Amino acid sequence: MSGNSGTADIYEAVIETARRMGVTPARDTVRAILSAYGDAFTHAMPLALRSATDAQHTGDLDCRFVTHPKNRNPYPLALSKGLTPTTDHPVGALLSSIEERFPVDGYGIDFGVVNGFAKVYAGFPPDDLQKLPELAAIPAMPRGLADRADFFRQHGLDDKVAFTAIDYPHRTVNVYFNDVPPACREADGIRTMLHDLGLPEPSEHLLALAGRSFGLYTTLDWESPGIRRLCFGVTTTDLSSLPVPVDPRLEKFAQSVPYGGPGRKYVYGVAATATGEYHKLETHYKWNPGTVAFI
Score class of each variant (00 low, 15 high):
residue 61 L to R: 08
residue 249 R to F: 08
residue 58 T to W: 14
residue 234 V to N: 00
residue 223 E to N: 13
residue 273 T to P: 05
residue 218 T to Q: 07
residue 244 V to L: 14
residue 73 N to V: 13
residue 65 F to A: 12
residue 11 Y to T: 07
residue 89 H to L: 06
residue 102 F to Q: 01
residue 223 E to W: 13
residue 166 I to N: 06
residue 83 L to V: 01
residue 289 P to S: 15
residue 163 F to R: 00
residue 291 T to S: 11
residue 62 D to S: 09
residue 231 C to W: 02
residue 68 H to N: 10
residue 116 G to K: 10
residue 184 C to G: 07
residue 98 I to N: 05
residue 192 T to M: 06
residue 160 K to C: 04
residue 205 H to I: 01
residue 240 S to R: 03
residue 137 A to R: 15
residue 49 L to Q: 12
residue 90 P to E: 01
residue 228 R to H: 07
residue 19 R to A: 11
residue 281 L to Q: 07
residue 28 D to G: 15
residue 171 R to I: 07
residue 232 F to E: 00
residue 97 S to L: 05
residue 139 P to W: 12
residue 180 V to L: 02
residue 20 R to D: 06
residue 140 A to T: 07
residue 41 F to C: 03
residue 105 D to A: 15
residue 136 A to T: 02
residue 30 V to G: 06
residue 271 A to F: 04
residue 36 A to V: 03
residue 16 E to K: 08
residue 208 A to W: 05
residue 133 P to A: 09
residue 66 V to D: 05
residue 289 P to G: 14
residue 242 L to I: 14
residue 72 R to Y: 06
residue 67 T to Y: 12
residue 246 V to P: 04
residue 245 P to Q: 06
residue 216 L to S: 07
residue 168 Y to R: 11
residue 25 P to T: 01
residue 33 I to M: 04
residue 142 P to F: 01
residue 84 T to H: 05
residue 251 E to Q: 14
residue 103 P to V: 14
residue 186 E to K: 12
residue 45 M to R: 15
residue 111 F to H: 10
residue 145 L to F: 01
